[in-house]
């Protein structure tokens, strides 16, 4: 190792230290304690092997929460992905009002859930606006309680799309702006229509953006808990009973045992999912060991 490299390592260490120490103190080290607790009995003395994991795995609420969370993510992320991409292409090709449309669609990102929730109640409550519209269209009385029934899932999906389309839109637009005009010209000369341009120019060029969009969509999908909590409280309809609900119930009863065990299972699960994700991204990009954030 030459001197330059050694000096670089020292600087890297110094630059990274403030962040790394805090992350270790608040996340990594206590997680070690969490792992330890997941193998001990409730009083924290005796080693019980995999018993806690069996209990949590057999727990009906845990299974329901995991299933619902996965179902929500599988439903909502592809829809958001396609919808926001479509809108961003529309904005990119519109001649007037690009800025206005962009600001309009991005605005929901910055609206706090607590501030807008009353409007959601106006729209979705039993006497609310949507029931009135549906009654008007179908000529019969609708008094569906949107938030406290099977439809709660739909309400959350709509909320998630309303809030997060702008986020992904910004990412897509950034990707689109980096595509040189000459590529479109070349495609057009070859006789490509707008669909073919999307297929052969836009999608391949946006590969780098796709990974980021996916990751941020996943991160944001857990934040929908805020709306779920504000609309339906901590005991919502079973169709939207998700992991955050489960953890907050265990937290209230201070069931550290179960929380630790479930946290370990979820971290392992997320780690595996991330490994698969990285493998796929690496496969797409044919990277040769070069470092990249993805």
């Amino acid at each position: 190792m030459n001197r330059r490299q050694r000096r670089k390592n020292v600087t890297a260490g110094l630059f990274l230290a403030p962040s790394l120490c805090g992350v270790c103190l608040f996340s990594v080290l206590p997680f070690g304690d969490v792992v330890r607790r997941s193998f001990l009995d409730a009083r924290g003395y005796a080693f019980v092997g995999m018993q806690n994991f069996r209990i949590v795995w057999g727990n009906g609420a845990f299974r329901l929460a995991v299933a619902n969370t996965l179902r929500f993510m599988i439903t909502v992320i592809p829809v958001l992905f396609v919808f926001s991409l479509y809108l961003s292409i529309l904005i990119a090709q519109s001649k007037k009002g690009q800025r206005l449309f962009r600001i309009s669609l991005v605005l929901p990102i910055v609206i706090p859930a607590a501030a807008i929730i009353l409007v959601w109640k106006i729209l979705f409550c039993t006497d609310g606006f949507f029931n009135q519209v549906l009654s008007f269209i179908s000529k019969r009385k609708w008094d569906l309680d949107w938030v406290n029934g099977q439809t709660a899932f739909l309400v959350l999906t709509v909320t998630y799309l309303w809030k997060n389309t702008g986020y992904d839109l910004l990412l897509w637009l950034a990707g689109l702006s980096a595509i040189p005009e000459s590529l479109y010209d070349a495609a057009r000369v070859d006789g490509a229509g707008s669909l073919a341009q999307i297929r052969y120019v836009i999608l391949p060029c946006l590969r780098g953006t796709m990974g980021l969009v996916m990751v941020l969509s996943v991160v944001n999908s857990f934040r929908v808990y805020r709306e779920a909590y504000l609309l339906a409280g901590s005991y919502p309809d079973l169709s939207i009973y998700m992991l955050p609900h489960l953890f907050s119930h265990w937290f209230i009863t201070l069931d550290v045992q179960k929380m630790s065990t479930a946290a370990v299972m979820l971290v392992v699960g997320a780690g595996i999912a991330m490994g698969i994700f990285y493998a796929i991204v690496a496969g797409i990009k044919h990277k040769d060991g070069h470092f990249s954030a993805f």
């Binding site: 670089k8 992350v23 996340s27 997680f31 857990f222 808990y225 907050s248 937290f251 929380m259």
Partner: peptide
């Protein structure tokens, strides 16, 4: 800056970012 273990450390950061608050809440 290039330093040994950079990629793995960064992946740790990404993992912590992706985890919902409730999972890290216990720690």
């Amino acid at each position: 800056l290039d330093f040994p273990g950079r990629q793995w450390l960064f992946r740790l950061y990404v993992l912590l970012m992706v985890l919902p608050f409730q999972v890290t809440q216990v720690s």
